[in-house]
Simulated assay, not measured.
Amino acid sequence: MSLLNVALRCGQCRGPLGIFNPLARSFHTGQILLARQTKKVATPSKKMLAAKARRKSKTKKSIYDSEKMTLADAVSVLRAVEVASPNSTYELVVKTDMKKGTAIPRGRMSLPREPKAMSKDRILVFAEGRHLEEAKKAGADIVGGPELCDGIIAGRHRATVFLCIPSLLRAITPKLGRYLGPKGLMPSERRGTVTDDVATYIRRLKGSSEWRGDKSGVIRTPIAKLHYPVDDVVKNVRYFMNVVKRATGNLQDGKEKGKKENANKPSTAITKVILSSAQGPGIQISDA
């Protein structure tokens, strides 16, 4: 049979003019048929999603969760380990989930029973008028106006705390911002070191010590001595944790809840609280 006869008999192979076209025939592997054969993915029902969520909730927790202790138990264990060194110091480590752009947690505290001698702060105050006299009477080491800036940069005026009244902040910022800012010493309204009530702030500094976290948000501080009674250690830890929770936005006083600035302030989550000693292990606290 000739090719022309085949073309005349097969209608699929003929074009609109009856001319044979071998490429016009659609086989079973054509794009249209393959698209029809594609299976649709079934949408999971609510029951299936609920069952999947239950399976996830039954997954094993971290192996370290079983190693947590209450604060009182952790103190007792460390005292037993350090029985030969009663003068050792408890160290408290607080790990926070510090996100990008979050300020490093820091503040000041005065523990109910201090584990070490209080370090004396050297206080420099930028003030003028009556504030200058009040700062001197309160015990400030160096008091003056913007003329102190050059001496600070040159190293003639050294201090551990810098305070400033609001009216002088713009005058000192251009010169000292880049010098004191990276050191964390630049007066700031957020830290409370820019204030009109300089005398009250200085009196509060005299009986407190500073704490601060590192770049990763980990806070370390000596919290008590091994020979302290358990109740004293617990009081120190509870007090310090309240201070840290306020600084990280996890705890707010009743008066502060009404303020918009605190209501919009994002909180930095506290992930772990660990108590340790010189020779003892680090114990994660479950009720901190």
Rank of each mutant, 00 (worst) to 15 (best):
V243N: 05
A117G: 12
G107H: 01
P22K: 12
D197Y: 06
L4P: 03
L205I: 09
R25C: 14
A269S: 09
V94D: 02
L8K: 15
E128L: 12
D121G: 10
T43L: 12
L111C: 05
R191S: 14
K120E: 11
G207H: 15
A35I: 08
H157T: 11
G151Y: 11
P112S: 10
V273F: 01
T29E: 07
L17H: 09
P166V: 05
M69I: 06
L3F: 13
V83E: 13
I153L: 06
N250P: 02
P281D: 09
N87V: 12
M241P: 00
Y90M: 03
R55T: 13
D232P: 01
G181R: 08
I63F: 13
I172Q: 02
T248I: 03
L92S: 01
I153H: 00
E261L: 06
L163D: 00
E67Y: 13
I172V: 08
S167L: 04
P16H: 08
C149L: 05
V194R: 01
R36G: 15
T221L: 11
G282Y: 01
S88K: 03
T221S: 07
R36M: 15
A50M: 11
Q284R: 15
P182T: 07
R9D: 12
K58V: 13
A171G: 07
N5R: 14
L169C: 02
K215H: 12
I283C: 00
I285L: 05
S286T: 07
G177T: 10
S45Q: 05
L71R: 02
L163R: 00
T43V: 15
P187I: 02
P105D: 03
S26L: 13
Y90V: 05
S216M: 14
A288D: 08
K259W: 06
K120G: 06
E114Q: 09
K206W: 05
A117N: 11
T70R: 01
A42S: 15
A199M: 01
C13H: 07
L4M: 09
Q31F: 12
V243C: 09
G129T: 07
P16S: 11
P266G: 09
R178I: 06
G30A: 07
T160S: 13
T248D: 02
Y239K: 12
E114L: 11
K257Y: 05
G181H: 05
I32F: 11
